[in-house]
Each structure stands twice: as C-alpha cells, then as structure tokens.
Amino acid sequence: MVRNHVAVGIAGLVVATLATAATADVVSSSFETGLDGWTSFQNGAFAPEWVPPAGPNSGYARLTDSTTGWGYFRAPAAFTAQAAQYGGALSFSLRHDVQGDPVSYSVRVGLTGGGLTLINEQTLPTSSWTSYTFGLELGLGWRVFSDLSRNYSAAAPLATQTQLEAVLSGLNGLYIAADYTPGYAPSDLDRTSIDDVSLTVVPAPGAAALLGLGGLLSALRRR
C-alpha cells in the first residue's frame, strides 16, 4: 500500500509539473542593444536598420519599403521556437513615416504554420508611435490566405478555432508589415518602425524538471 501511495503522489507531481511548464510565457524584443535577430521578408535587398537608444528615447527597428508588393519585418526564431498560446496576444508599437503616396493599408500582421497562412489588420498607421494588440483567438479578424502577398479582404474566409490552433501550435513564421502605401518610388519615403514586440507562448517543459521527475520515478522502481 505504501508503494501505491507513493505512485499516486508522484503521478500528481508529474501532472503539476507539466501544468506549470505549460503556463503561458512571453517572448519579446525591445531593440535596446540591436535588432534581436529581426530580418526582412519580401523587401528586396533592404534589411531592417537598428536605431540605438538616444537620450530618453529607446532603441527600435525600422525598415524602408523597396518593392511594389507586401514587405515585412520577420521575427527571429525565438518567437517561433515554441507554440504560441491560443487566447494570448501579439503586441507591439509601430510608427510609419511617409512622403509621396498616401497611406492606404491598415497595420497588418501575418502568421504561418500548420500549412496555413493567416493575416489580420487593424487601423491605418500614423507617424506617431502607437501600440497595437492582436488577440490570438477566434472572432478577432484572422482570415485564411494562400500567402502573405494577398491584400486583406472580407472575401477571405475567417479562420476557425481549429485553424488558429493549428497555426499557433506549429508556428514557423511571424510577420509585421512594413509597407502601407499602394506604390513604390525610390524618391518617396515609406518607412515603418517597430518597438516592444511581445508574443504569448507556451514554453516546453524544462529539462531540469523532467530530469527531476525521472529521478523520482527511478526511486519508485527501486522500492
């Protein structure tokens, strides 16, 4: 009977440890010391630039549009190494500086994973830093597209919860758009800046915790 009580206790510890490991966490980039691994996607030869902190201003990343299609900031592997949390959020601050063509598109993000591409948009960007939050759950505007080059449209199907969960659990790409005008001319200014990016994720069980459980189970087998 003692052995049974020990087994029940360890089983409870396993459940508690895995539940703790599955608690949502946040991956973030503040750009205080560099680009934090952010790159560009579909933006020709133009890569993001790091603007270091100066006085009271924090550091940030900026990207100048260099194509007629949709160009993006692409998140580093730290944002896709773990499953994103359904019910969590993607948050960031964004500023858009423009001269020439008018601003025509709303602040836009894309997610890829599980063989799917989801896109969502909010309001038009401005030349002032503005905070945006995209909730990662059903009914908040996520739509399914064939790829990240499509314009956001109400004609595209809204993502189901199953599709959202498939993308978030197999997340392999996270993108913030850097192009909000309809055309491209080298003489125009079409530049997007981002800062304080955060994504709610579910961290994998810690190796130390699993090793500890392995030790307890070994002890049980020796009884």
Rank of each mutant, 00 (worst) to 15 (best):
A155M: 09
Q85R: 15
Q163K: 03
D36F: 14
T160C: 05
I10L: 10
T23S: 11
T181D: 01
G206S: 14
Y184E: 09
S30T: 14
G135F: 07
G214M: 08
L174E: 05
W70M: 06
L171T: 00
S29N: 12
A54Y: 08
T112G: 05
L35K: 05
G173W: 01
A7Y: 07
A209V: 05
Y175G: 02
A19T: 15
W129V: 01
G113C: 10
P56T: 10
G173N: 01
W142V: 00
D190W: 02
G115S: 02
L189W: 01
N172G: 04
D195S: 14
A159L: 03
W38S: 08
A61R: 06
G215C: 13
S218V: 10
T123F: 05
P76K: 10
G110R: 03
S198R: 12
F145N: 00
L210Y: 02
V26H: 12
A47G: 04
P52Y: 08
W70K: 01
G71S: 15
T192G: 03
T133R: 13
L94H: 00
P205N: 10
D25R: 03
Y184D: 12
T23C: 08
Q85L: 07
Y86L: 06
G71M: 03
N120S: 15
D195C: 08
A155S: 14
D196I: 00
V103L: 11
G113H: 03
R108A: 04
L158H: 04
T123E: 08
V109D: 01
F92P: 09
A77N: 14
